[in-house]
Nucleic acid binder design. Structure first.
Lengths: 223, 223
DNA sequence: TTCATTTCTTAAGTTTTCCTTAATTTTCAA
DNA sequence: TTGAAAATTAAGGAAAACTTAAGAAATGAA
């Protein structure tokens, strides 16, 4: 289930992203309205958790845009305001649920499950969970990779690394960018961990699949 | 839209019935669990507004009964308790929404509109009572499992665990996701219960049937 | 009810796998 | 050619999962 979290408080967002991923969601994060709209336009978001208190405008405009687009996207509102009128406006604009801050993460998850259950009976999609780049395929739901259709085992970090590369195929990712994708900005990497993971990946993937651009970074699927 | 209000406070009920009718609902009123069940058994209720604080027992039992019956009835909970855990229990039992007392009637109506909108586009998913994954079969009705056609005994939790895994075969479920499926968020799991159940299950199932993806979760039925 | 039995949770010890580090070698571009 | 960047190796340590066992709960029967 692909979920977009629209929340500008970085600390709160970080924690939620982590827990939501543990709950099984594929999470994107936007800290502003324009960033959120970019993700939505991209097309494969199924659920939005929307904080109404954003720096660059009223979050309700995102809700309006989603509902006007008629895309099958469910929206759960999140806000510090708890006046009944705001709730009503949100719900009547088409929001699927509403949670006042401060909230218990467990309640958020429970409400998301309700929405997910509902979506599940409307959509039969799990297709967005397959990524492909030439003869390499990633099954995100099954956490499995295939080379020429043959399954290969990948440990967690290697899988994350390959996922990041394929999601950005034909685009070069620097080691710093890759580190940001693999590590929750908690611990600094003091060594060449990325290089070692790349090396392990290469032994399992087709020759030349991951290209090195010396001094710049790594890339897959270029030319 | 035929709505059943389950509320024992006569005064509050009186007012709500009046306003709900004004909103266009066809309203029935029950002041007790048994009375409510009678209306539901009668058969043409589409929506229930359920007060949890009833004189003759816990309103949650009505919710359970409705959801077990698989009738396409939406339920909105209404209650004075506002502990998060109660909300979560209600929502996970299948309630469509929740409103803590005291509430603003306008908010109730807004939430009912959301539910009504949803009911309009809802299709009922009839679950098969037999699940299969390679040579393992689950009979949900008979609460029994078969390996190569031979019945094996599974305690409740182990059965639920296997059911969750097979329902999501070829998709990895994290321990957090499995916990959500086995426990109604009433109490926290402070330990490695999931791991222990997995261990017991494995002793009864074909070798390699449940795979571990370290750091990710468990999966069955993968290539 | 009470008791006996099954099932569940907790906790500790063990094992396994994976990740990081660091030292060394190789490659590449200036 | 030469120095910096990347590749390669191997090992130590840490995290996650497995296993076992015992006590707590839940269940069901008398």
């Amino acid at each position: 289930m692909k979920l977009l979290l629209v929340e500008d408080d970085a600390l709160l967002a970080q924690g939620l992203i982590h827990s939501l991923k543990k709950e099984g969601y594929s999470v994107e994060h936007a800290g502003s309205i324009c960033c959120a709209m970019a993700f939505i336009d991209e097309g494969n978001i199924e659920m939005v958790v929307l904080d109404l208190g954003l720096p660059d405008g009223d979050g309700l405009s995102i809700l309006k845009a989603i509902k006007q687009s008629k895309l099958p996207i469910a929206v759960l509102l999140l806000t510090a305001r708890d006046s009944t009128d705001d709730k009503i406006i949100g719900l009547d604009l088409g929001a699927d649920d509403y949670l006042p801050k401060p909230f218990d993460a467990k309640e958020l998850f429970a409400r998301l499950r309700v929405i997910g259950r509902r979506l599940g009976s409307q959509l039969t999609t799990q297709l967005s969970s397959i990524l492909t780049c030439s003869n390499v395929t990633l099954d995100l739901g099954g956490h499995q990779a295939f080379v020429d259709g043959i399954a290969i085992e990948l440990p967690r970090k290697e899988f994350m690394l390959l996922k990041a590369l394929i999601e950005n195929q034909a685009r070069v990712l620097s080691k710093a960018q890759l580190e940001n994708k693999l590590y929750q900005w908690g611990e600094e990497l003091g060594s060449n961990a990325i290089e070692v993971h790349i090396h392990h990946l290469r032994k399992k993937l087709p020759k030349g699949f991951i290209k090195t651009l010396r001094g710049i970074g790594y890339v897959v699927g270029k030319q």
